[in-house]
Design a protein around this nucleic acid. Structure first.
Length: 692
RNA sequence: GCCACUGUAGCUCAGUGGUAGAGCGCACCCUUGGUAAGGGUGAGGUCGUGAGUUCAAAUCUCACCAGCGGCUCCA
């Protein structure tokens, strides 16, 4: 006798078991037909799930009542589309073994092991899509059935897929006593798959789909395990939504920092220089310099000392820090002294021997620095410190080099040489809390000034099962607790993630998404008890005894390269005045106004505004178009009327029409103010307030 | 590093086993035009690199390099 509570609080009583679909029918046939699944006691289930006992029931329709996408409905849709795709692929390539096919936020994939002699190619998409269309047209129901565990295992063994067998074992280990299968149609007759579900009622509900791309993946995500082929696709309930999704992807591409970087001439990468090595062109250099000046001013306020250190250090330095030889794979190879190299090559020394001798310290050399900490530690250690001197805060825009795998390089966001806005704070254990908060506030100041509100905070802890973390567990516990407490003071939600710590200590990271949804770590604050230990650092306490300082590593931007890459996308290339490489462009209406344009330009430059004038032999419309495409904050149209009145006609980026005319000296004061205040007051606002 | 795709003029891209194409940009000429492209002329390319197949390769094959989308990694 199930009593079913609906979301509006009403209760429906039945004297027999019913399916969710039946319940929907008692409310209305139209509703029932619009349903694709249901939530029973908050758990997403098939629409035809039979309800035997009291529960809450919420029906899942294609769209919510206010016509929005329903994440649960899309989950069912994409999971079901993955099944249809898998069936189509197996029809086309019978030896293909299925592994795992989950839905994602905007898409789905299926990991598949293809026979070595028949890999999947991009050219197969059309044939697969054709098969899928046929399966959808047949409108076959997704039919769930359960087998007792050992019986299910026999069935899977008979099919001969070690991957599915592995999935079944895992389900069993997780406590499942039976195995569930889904047939696309009739069990025993139609295609089926070991699957937890749930699914749509039938294939016909898949309105629109597209196979997107192929990638290689690893079984269990393990690089040393079997290589699988991952087939990505996406689906929607109707063609219009699919089209809108594809258009969004196209739009996102336009604000990609790699596209804008070229168009706005912000940076370049040249093969002859090397992969992942950024050439900062004049425009990009302006953005970088403005950001550096901004943060430097904040550092001065917070009592930091700026230092400069070289780009290389001896191998021994990194033996002490623990970077060499343990992280040798992710670094540029060492620089070996010339005489040594000659000697070794004359002796016929093999590469393996060379590498061995370097690890053991028999051969000395230098390394391009992968991080700045060892150098800063040596700066700290260059003189004795009293507890009264602490905290010592050493800051440097330090350039580091790391040998990232070629497939990981990405525009400015993943590079092989980059400059961190780095600092290392040496403090007493008592000072950690306050210092961490100071560091976090710096990150917040940056995000606030730039209007970056869409970020998440991660507290990276050590993974107790991993051996890569060095140091005393008791210190780790203290450091992790300090990070947790500091993160709590931020006033924003954060997640604690084991396995995300640095090898020497836990950290608090600020993570932002790029235009295509990839996450990038920007600002970071890390607590470190280990390196002070390794380098035997000390300060003299009030008791006249030596004490060990604690180190805090922090970089509010993370790296200039990655930060500016993300920033370009954040602003879609339309930088605010204080960051814009070209802040103002003067557009004379014709050659006759060139003289006045030159006068305006000279006055702008005199107050430090980055301005140019466009004296090309073009009409004003073309000049406006060019200026707008370069996303210049202000275009000043100047013609005879303006020259007469000693005024300028102002057109701000992002406004359809011009703002109107303004006396030249007033504009200059206003733009200088906008620059100085980092946009707290703007030229645009002056016009707004003038009209009120 | 792994899998797929891509690589043609400064940029965006078309093209195809038989003499290399367009638009934008650039230079020059005409035009002196008041808020998102005025018109004309011209310069500019070993078709990513190297090998192979062929009478003939930018086009087909192989290798390499680079980019893109993923995977893995990220101190």
């Amino acid at each position: 006798m199930p009593q079913i509570t609906l979301p509006d609080g009403s209760v429906k009583s039945f004297d027999h078991s019913v399916s969710a679909f039946d319940v929907a029918m008692t409310i209305g046939e139209r509703l029932a037909k619009a349903c694709v699944g249901c939530l029973i006691d908050e758990e997403l289930c098939d629409l035809n799930t039979v309800i035997e006992s009291d529960c809450t029931l919420s029906l899942v329709t294609e769209k919510t009542r206010d016509k929005q996408d329903d994440p649960n409905a899309l989950f069912l849709l994409r999971h079901s589309t993955a099944h249809v795709m898998a069936e189509a692929i197996q029809r086309l390539i019978p030896g293909a073994m299925l592994v795992y096919g989950p839905p994602l936020e905007n898409s789905f994939y299926y990991d598949i092991k293809f026979p070595d002699d028949r890999p999947l190619k991009d050219g197969d998409f059309e044939a697969i899509e054709k098969e899928m269309t046929a399966i959808i047209k047949e409108n076959r129901p997704f039919t769930r059935y359960e087998l007792e565990y050992s019986e299910g295992i026999r069935k899977i063994e008979a099919e001969g897929s070690k991957y599915k067998l592995d999935n079944a074992h895992r389900a069993h280990e997780a406590g499942s006593l039976s195995l569930t299968f889904y047939a696309t149609g009739e069990p025993g007759k139609d295609w089926e798959d070991l699957c937890r579900g749930p699914h749509l009622p039938s294939t016909g509900r898949i309105g629109a789909f597209k196979i997107m791309s192929l990638a290689s993946s690893y079984w269990h995500g393990d690089e040393n395990s079997d290589r699988l082929t991952r087939v990505y696709g996406t689906s929607f309930f109707n063609k219009k939504d699919l089209k809108a999704h594809l258009e969004r992807l196209e739009e996102a591409k336009k604000r990609d920092h790699r596209v804008l970087g070229k168009k706005l001439r912000l940076f370049a990468i040249d093969d002859a220089v090397g992969q992942g090595l950024i050439l900062w062109t004049p425009n990009g250099s302006i953005v970088r310099k403005e950001l550096q000046n901004f943060i430097s001013a904040e550092l001065t306020k917070q009592g930091y000392s700026e230092v400069f250190t070289p780009h290389i250090g001896k191998l021994d330095l990194y033996r002490t820090s623990g970077h060499f030889p343990y992280y040798a794979d992710s670094q540029f190879p060492p620089l070996i002294e010339r005489d040594h190299l000659v000697e070794l090559s004359e002796e016929g020394c093999s590469c393996a021997q060379l590498s061995n001798n370097m690890s053991t310290g028999q051969i000395e050399g230098f390394m391009l620095k992968p991080m700045n900490c060892p150098h800063h530690i040596k700066v700290f250690d260059s003189q004795p410190h009293s507890y009264k001197d602490l905290p010592v805060r050493l800051a440097e825009f330090g350039t580091v080099y790391r040998w990232e795998q070629s497939g990981e390089l990405n525009g400015m966001t993943r590079v092989r040489g980059f400059t961190q806005d780095d600092a290392h704070l040496f403090c007493t254990p008592d000072q950690i809390g306050a210092e961490l908060q100071g560091c976090l506030s710096l990150v917040k100041i940056i995000f606030d000034v730039l209007g970056m509100i869409d970020y998440r905070v991660r507290v990276g802890l050590r993974d107790p099962d991993s051996g890569k973390y060095t140091g005393d567990p008791a210190n780790w516990d203290k450091a992790e607790q300090a990070c947790r407490e500091a993160a709590q003071t931020l006033g924003v939600p954060f997640t604690e993630e084991p396995g995300e710590a640095a090898f020497y200590g836990p950290k608090i990271d600020f993570i932002v998404k790029d235009v295509i949804g990839r996450e990038w770590q920007l600002g970071t604050v890390q607590v470190d008890y280990n390196l002070p230990e390794r380098f035997n650092l000390s300060y003299i306490g009030a008791d006249n005894e030596k004490h060990r300082p604690v180190m805090i590593h922090r970089a509010p931007f993370g790296s200039m390269e990655r930060f500016i890459g993300v920033l370009i996308e954040h602003f879609a290339g339309a930088f605010p005045v204080w960051l814009a490489p070209e802040q103002v462009r003067v557009l004379p209406i014709s050659e006759k106004s060139n003289d006045y344009a030159a006068e305006v330009l000279a006055q702008l430059k005199a107050v430090g505004i980055r301005a140019t004038s466009d004296t090309h032999d073009q009409r004003i419309q073309a000049k406006i178009k060019n200026g707008s495409e370069m996303k210049i904050p202000y275009l000043l149209i100047v013609g005879p009327r303006d020259a007469e009145a000693k005024a300028v006609s102002v057109r701000a980026f992002g406004t359809e029409k011009d703002l109107g005319s303004m006396p030249l000296d007033e504009f200059i004061a206003a733009i200088a103010n906008e620059y100085e205040s980092k946009g707290t007051t703007t030229v645009k606002e002056r016009f707004a307030t003038a009209t009120v």
